[in-house]
């Protein structure tokens, strides 16, 4: 089996703080880099080293949190924690399998588009010389990829929106965007997990909780997931809210 260093010769490794080490797989957003980050994340989680705390996957980086005191005491090769962990991670054997995660079905997120829940739908449609329905159809036709979770708990950075829907942010951000609101900003689309201030164009809202501390996995989505939006009616929206 090849080591991590051999498997990903372009990999850069750097420290962020005394308790974090970052593996950088590239400097762009791509499905290929996402699958590398996801694969190595799994690899480290499956065989945690002494002092391992957790990981933070991002667009092109995987950051590993660890306990420097445990690393200090460990017999890994190196002068200090960063060197020890860097040597250890780069020599990890990488199994040559395709991640099973790639073939899983998309997570379906029901959306009520427009109305009070999507106050900017008309504006976005007008901006692109489209009907409201055309915006809804384009937005719900695509399959999106979750590149990372960041910004606020449960917020998914999605890739895959039709560029025809790209819209500038609102000139004046709203002071409160309700949880579940679906927005567009530039070429990005996403769902607000919590009520926060926000400047995205809000075209709809999901009745699902994107973040719920009572769930085993509080964030509905995780990096590597596929997502599809499904248009629902107002009565379906209300029904979802009751379950």
């Amino acid at each position: 089996m090849q080591t991590l260093r051999e498997y990903y010769p372009h990999l850069a490794v750097y420290p962020l703080s005394e308790n974090t080490i970052t593996l950088q797989f590239g400097t762009s957003i791509s499905a290929d880099i996402l699958s590398q980050v996801t694969k190595v994340n799994q690899l480290i989680q499956e065989k945690p080293f002494l002092g391992f705390i957790t990981t933070v996957p991002a667009y092109s980086t995987l950051t590993v949190y660890y306990d420097p005191l445990q690393l200090f005491k460990s017999k890994l090769d190196g002068l200090h924690g960063f060197q020890k962990l860097s040597n250890y991670l780069l020599s990890l054997p990488v199994p040559d399998y395709q991640s099973a995660e790639t073939n899983k079905p998309p997570v379906i997120i029901p959306i009520y588009y427009g109305g009070d829940h999507g106050p900017d739908l008309d504006e976005v449609a007008t901006m692109h010389n489209m009907s409201d329905d055309a915006v809804i159809n384009l937005h719900s036709a695509a399959t999106y990829t979750v590149y990372m979770i960041g910004f606020v708990p449960g917020f998914a950075y999605l890739g895959g929106m039709d560029k025809a829907l790209a819209s500038p942010r609102k000139a004046t951000p709203r002071t409160a965007v309700p949880a579940g609101s679906v927005g567009i900003a530039g070429e990005q689309t996403g769902v607000y997990p919590l009520q926060t201030p926000g400047g995205w164009q809000i075209i709809g809202r999901t009745p699902l909780s994107m973040f719920d501390v009572t769930r085993n996995q509080p964030s509905l989505l995780k990096a590597g997931d596929l997502v599809k939006f499904e248009a629902i009616t107002e009565s379906e929206f209300k029904y979802y809210q009751t379950i």
Partner: peptide, 8 residues
Amino acid sequence: WEYLSQAV
């Protein structure tokens, strides 16, 4: 510390 990957 356990939910950083979910942005907590």
